[in-house]
Amino acid sequence: MDEIVSNSVHTDDPDEEMARKVKCESCGSSVEGFFCVDCHTILPFSKETDYFTMMQVEKRPCIDLNKLKENYLIISEVIHPDKYYNASADVKDLALACSSLLNKAYSTLRDPKERIKYLISIETDKEAPVSNRASAGTMEFFIEASDVCNEADTFIKKGGSGEDKKRELRNRLKEYKKESQGKWNNVLKDIDKIDNEWVAVLSKEKKPLLRRLLVLSHELSYLTKLQSMLDEMMIALS
């Protein structure tokens, strides 16, 4: 299990590095993260540990997803409750708590929309506002595509007979799905650009970047919602 320790992120900020070092409660060794290699004990995540630190990936808009997955699996293997099935109730509770948090961290960082919202929340110390509008272009596209979804929904509720109509609707939905994926990819490219600037600026000067990220996160929210609507309708028409 040495990998976990060696995989840790090295930042230039000595304070941050220290913050993640804690003393193992059962044997007193100084450890990073949440697992004491010396005595094989799980340590609780500290409240201050953010998901990026926890998953041992860099805290920035774009992350190495392969590394994220790899770390997730490595840490899961260590802290999953199944590994402590016959342990004391305290250790079991700890394994459960850590494992839940780990799953949450992984699912948040894996999804670009959730990752960015989370990054904004920890960098600005408040939740990203949820109900904001996307750009005019995206809103218009969203409404247009929703209309097709509604049409498909009405068609299905009326019994959904007529192969031609079905096929036609399916094709239109497919087109919108394709277009929304294109839009999604464009947003990711914009995030990429911000990511490039991210490392170049000092932490005090990140505010404008965060504002830009917030706008992009709204775009992704609408596109996510739209894609699941399109998916649902395409399945219903299959």
Partner: peptide, 8 residues
């Protein structure tokens, strides 16, 4: 399709 254990 949320991995368990989980907390939300």
């Amino acid at each position: 399709n949320t991995t368990v254990p989980t907390k939300a």
